[in-house]
Simulated scan of single mutants.
Amino acid sequence: MNILISPNAFKNSVDAKSVALLIQEGLILSKLDCTCECYPIADGGDGTCDLIMDKLSGKYVESIVRNPLGKKTKATFGLINMGNTAVIEMSNASGMKLLKPDELNPLIANSFGTGEQMILALDKGVKKIIIGMGGSATVDGGTGILSALGVRFLNKSGENLHNLPKDLPDLDCIDISGLDKRILDCELVVLCDVDNKLLGEYGSAKVFGPQKGATPNNVKKLDDCLLQLSKVIIKNFGLDISEIKFGGTAGGAAAGLYALLNAKLVNGIDYFLELTGYDGALEKCDLVITGEGSIDEQTLQGKGPFGVAKRAKSRGIPVIGLAGKVPLQITEELHQYFDVLIPISHEPLDLAKAFDFATHNIKRTAFEIGNLLNINN
C-alpha cells in the first residue's frame, strides 16, 4: 500500500512537517506493509511559506525589519523560481510569535515590517510576491505594509497618522503619490486561510482580535478603525473592500492590499497544492492521510485537510482524517470527503495536556491505523 501523508499543522502544538513524520513512524511500526510519502501541507497559515520553500528548493534571505511594535528584529523571506518570485511569511516580521503574551495589542501593533520585506524583495528584482498571512499580530487593514511602501494616511488637516491602526478613526484621505511604483508591476498573491470579510460580526476585529490580545472594548475600536478605512477607500478609489471574500485575512491586510496594490486574494490550500505539484504525488498513492488540530464543518470552508481530501476524492482515493478534535456527530457532508475521521486522544484530557501528549497520540493513532489496515489485507 502506498500512503500519502499530508497533514496541516496541529495549531499551537505540532508543525505540519513533524505531524507527517510522526504518522509515518506510527505506520512503519505497525504490521502494515506500506510505503509512505510525507507531503505536509499548509493553507496560508503560519508555516506555509517554509513548506513552499522546502518543496521548491528556495533560497532564504535574512534581513532586519521592524516587528509589530516597531522594534528591530531578524526576519527571513524566500526566493523561488530562479529568484523571480519572493515568498514572504507575514508572521516572520509581523507575527504573534515575535511578542510576549502581555505585549499583544492589535490596537498598536502594525504590519510595517512585512512591507519592509516586500521592498527588499523588490530590490532583488522579483516579478512576483507570494504572501502567507497566517499568524499575524495585527488588525491594521494592511496600513502598516502600505506605509512601508510609501502610502500616506492623512487626517483632515493633511497630517500623517503616526499611530496605526489606533488613529484610523481620524483618517480622511489616502495619498498614494509616494507609493513604490515597482509593486504595481509585480504580481502580488495573498494566500488566505480564512474567508471572513473585513467588518462586522464575522469580520477581522470581532473574530480574530481577541486571539491577538484585543479586549472587548478594543475589538469595537478596531472594527471602527477598519470601517473608517473602508469608507475612505470607497471615497478615494471607488472600491468597497467590506464585501470582499477573504478580505478579513490577517486583520484585514488582505483587503488593504487588494484595494491599493491590486493583490490577488486566493484560497491558500488550493494555491499551495497547485504550486507544489500535489497532483503528481496523488497519482502514486492508494490512500491519503491528512489532519489538523480540529476537523469539523468549518474545515469545509477551505481549510487544508479539505483541499487535500477534495483532490483525493476526485480521483477516487480514500481519505483518513486525524484531528485533536472531531464533531460528536459526523455530518454527511464531512463523510463525502473523509472516509474516516479519527480523534487522536485516547482518554479525556484538558487542552494543555492534549497539547503535551499530541506527538505521542499522533504516532500511536497512526500505529493503530496501520494495524487496522493490515487486517483488511
Rank of each mutant, 00 (worst) to 15 (best):
M1Y: 09
F10N: 00
K11N: 08
N12A: 13
N12Y: 13
S18C: 11
L21K: 15
I23L: 04
I28D: 05
T35I: 01
C36D: 00
Y39Q: 06
I41M: 15
D43M: 06
G45I: 05
L51I: 10
D54T: 10
K55V: 02
K59V: 12
K59N: 13
E62L: 14
G70N: 12
K72G: 13
K72W: 14
K72I: 11
T73V: 15
K74C: 13
F77P: 04
I80R: 00
N84A: 14
T85Q: 09
M90E: 10
G95L: 12
G95N: 02
K97A: 09
L99V: 03
K100A: 12
K100Y: 10
K100C: 06
D102C: 11
P106L: 08
P106W: 09
N110V: 08
G113N: 01
G113P: 02
T114F: 12
E116I: 11
L120M: 15
G125S: 06
I130E: 10
G132K: 10
M133T: 09
G141W: 02
G142E: 07
T143K: 09
T143C: 15
L146G: 03
L149M: 11
L149I: 08
V151F: 03
F153C: 06
F153D: 05
N163F: 13
D167C: 11
P169V: 07
P169G: 03
L171K: 03
L171Q: 04
I176D: 10
S177M: 13
L179F: 08
D180N: 15
V189A: 02
C192D: 07
L198K: 02
L198G: 05
G200L: 08
E201A: 13
G203S: 04
S204P: 00
G209K: 04
P210E: 06
P216Y: 10
D224I: 12
C225D: 02
C225L: 06
S230L: 08
V232N: 04
I234N: 11
K235I: 04
N236A: 07
G238H: 02
L239G: 00
E243C: 14
I244V: 10
I244G: 03
G248T: 12
T249V: 14
G252P: 12
A253R: 03
A259P: 04
V266T: 07
N267T: 01
I269K: 07
Y271G: 02
L273D: 01
D279Y: 08
I289P: 03
I289K: 04
E292V: 04
D296K: 03
L300D: 08
G304C: 11
F306W: 04
G307W: 10
V308P: 05
A309Q: 02
K313P: 02
S314C: 01
P318H: 10
V319S: 00
I320Q: 06
I320V: 14
A323P: 07
L328S: 14
L334K: 03
P343Y: 01
I344T: 12
K353L: 13
K353E: 14
K353A: 09
A358Y: 07
H360Q: 15
I362G: 03
I362P: 01
R364Y: 15
T365D: 01
T365L: 06
T365K: 09
A366D: 01
N371T: 02
L372V: 13
N374G: 04
